[in-house]
Design a protein around this nucleic acid. Structure first.
Length: 542
RNA sequence: CGGGGCGUAGCGCAGUCUGGUAGCGCACCUGGUUUGGGACCAGGGUGUCGGAGGUUCAAAUCCUCUCGCCCCGACCA
């Protein structure tokens, strides 16, 4: 019986986790590369996956992470695909300042209220050495905030750029970092600084702006489904969950494996609120001075967290193939010195052949891992990173002109031999098959954890966690999405949030849900007995 | 920002109650034996014990203050 190094590490880490017995005498618990498992402690599992997959780590700066190459490559792939989609829909990129004068934020009342509490503020522009310490000096006349979002500064510029209806629409996107001084941070899901894109558009009519809002929501939903293999519910936020300053906020919501909801993208119809705040005005065809109608929409590095929590398993990350930084890793088996050169040559040729294959709008991304490490060690590293396909190539495979294939959607030991030419020709299809299977699995998970609930009692029972002796223990996985009628009363929503930490994730749009049997017919709110236009999605959220 | 837990070698931890020259495992390096698989044996390097004050002949250990991380809330992409 082999007890692996990582496993014994894990046991030491957990110590009191209880159930492992070291595997002596058979009947051992299945060995997992990640300890604890999702079921044992979901929050801790998440952090261990981020670490094991080498996606990111905490930095010396509070709440700020270092995104490591493997994690950043995922983000780059997200960027590349979305950037293409933005351009396909007529948008162009630009860049606006990191700093925003405090007075700009004051212009929109709801906006101030929403963001004032979480702004980093720059008040000085110089340091002076005093007794060996650097002291800020040179106080600014007007403090600058580090952008938490750029509506105000972009609005200021839009006001200069727009005079006539002929200047509209203005369709701008920016890839940037923003800072929100959150109380509690988690890698990728909520960090003080995060990377995102923010689209900002201005239109001459409300209708056009609304259409833009919906178009971008659909771009996000398509991206989540087709690229991240992450099913989402599209819907509108309630007033309580709306973006500060927006008239309407729309979102895509995904279900994580702990059955909590993750808001994965938002698209806002801002009406004329920001146009009025920033004086974005234009003369229409009739010569009447009007305020423009604006939108904003964004997704962030949180998507990487969403990908982890949608697909990763107890052996680590599982990259959706279409966004995987590397599709296929080749692991040369070169035990005997005399074989080394010819095995490497075979691998290089194989890499070259594979790299000429098309997948997901580009070439296959294929790497050779020729590091001087033990084979099993390397295999597990790549499993934990979630690379979709591993090829182990040694003299025996060469003799048969075949490749030894391990797939991330199968067990670590479940590998098969495939003829080299057959594999090369079928690799793209295999990846797409894995992509589709990931989506199907996530969709089935979402569907099976989405419940139609029509009584208050059932609703409360659904979302009440099993009793625990330890008040500081992680909350056990429970609940999911509830489809329940809702009269729309804000105080009721607040009360439910207070009681259960459950909120309306969205009011689903007709025909836009991936999994749920959306009943869009009117009914009765089970909490108040008042009429309800349709069922809404309730869930705990990140 | 409230409640709880934790900061000791690259990582994970013991040592703290009861002050007395800083330890273990893994990782790392070297040599050897192995090897279609997260190996084994031997040898080796590694720390101002999160930081700053204080008490003391003596502080990882006691006291005060701070910073950071994790969990449970509140807040949020």
């Amino acid at each position: 019986m082999v007890v692996s190094a990582a496993m014994s590490d894990g046991k030491k880490q957990q110590g009191n986790q209880g159930k492992q017995d070291g595997g002596k005498g058979g009947g051992a618990a299945p060995q997992t590369a990640i300890v604890p498992t999702r079921a044992d402690n979901y929050a801790e599992w998440y952090q261990q996956v981020v670490k094991a997959a080498d996606l990111a780590e905490n930095s010396p700066v509070r709440g700020c992470m270092v995104i490591k190459p493997w994690g950043y490559a995922l983000w780059e792939n997200i960027q590349r695909v979305l950037d293409g989609a933005f351009k396909d829909t007529g948008h162009v990129n630009a860049y606006f300042p990191l700093f925003i004068p405090v007075s700009f934020l004051e212009k929109e009342a709801a906006h101030v209220e929403g963001f004032a509490k979480e702004c980093a503020v720059v008040t000085h522009h110089r340091l002076e050495l005093k007794d060996g310490k650097l002291i800020p000096t040179g106080e600014l006349e007007e403090p600058l905030v580090v952008r938490p979002t750029s509506e105000t500064i972009i609005g200021e510029m839009f006001a200069k750029w727009v005079q006539s209806y002929r200047d509209l629409p203005l369709l701008i996107n920016q890839w940037a970092n923003v800072v929100r001084w959150e109380m509690r941070t988690r890698l990728f899901l909520r960090t003080t600084e995060f990377l995102w894109q923010e689209g900002h558009t201005a239109h001459s009519t409300a209708q056009e702006a609304v259409e833009e809002t919906m178009q971008m929501l659909r771009v996000y939903a398509d991206f989540a489904r087709n690229w991240m293999a992450m099913p989402v519910v599209c819907g509108e936020k309630t007033a309580g969950e709306r973006f500060p300053g927006a008239v309407q906020t729309f979102c895509i919501e995904a279900m994580m494996q702990d059955r909590k909801a993750l808001q994965a993208g938002t698209s806002h119809f801002l009406g004329q609120n920001f146009a009025k705040a920033s004086e974005i005005r234009f003369l229409d065809e009739k010569g009447v001075l009007e305020h423009a109608w604006t939108t904003s929409w964004g997704v962030s590095t949180r998507l990487v967290g969403g990908m982890i929590m949608t697909h990763a398993d107890d052996d680590g990350m599982v990259c959706p193939p279409r966004l995987a930084p590397t599709h296929i890793v080749i692991l040369p088996v070169t035990h005997k010195e005399e074989d080394r050169e010819r095995v490497l040559a075979y691998c290089k040729q194989l890499q070259k052949d594979l790299r000429s294959q098309e997948f997901a709008g580009g070439k296959l991304r294929v790497e050779i891992d020729n590091r001087d490490l033990r084979g099993g060690d390397k295999v597990w590293q790549w499993i934990k990173k979630g690379v979709p396909i591993r090829l182990e190539i040694g003299p025996r495979d060469m003799d048969k002109d075949s490749v030894f294939v391990g797939r991330r959607d199968k067990g670590p030991k479940e590998k098969s031999t495939i003829l080299r030419t057959e594999f090369i020709g079928g690799a793209a299809a295999m990846l797409q098959e894995m992509q589709d299977a990931l989506y199907a699995r996530a969709l089935a998970f979402q569907a099976s954890n989405t419940k139609i609930i029509d009584s208050k009692e059932e609703f409360y029972a659904y979302f009440t966690p099993p009793a625990s002796k330890d008040p500081n223990a992680p909350t056990p996985i429970h609940g999911g999405f509830a489809l329940t009628h809702f009269c729309g009363d804000r105080e009721l929503e607040a009360k439910i949030k207070d009681d259960l930490s459950v909120t309306v994730r969205c009011i689903p749009l007709d025909g836009e849900g991936d999994a749920a049997p959306y009943d869009t017919t009117p009914g009765t709110c089970p909490f108040t007995g008042k009429p309800s236009a349709k069922r809404v999605v309730w869930a705990k959220s990140y």
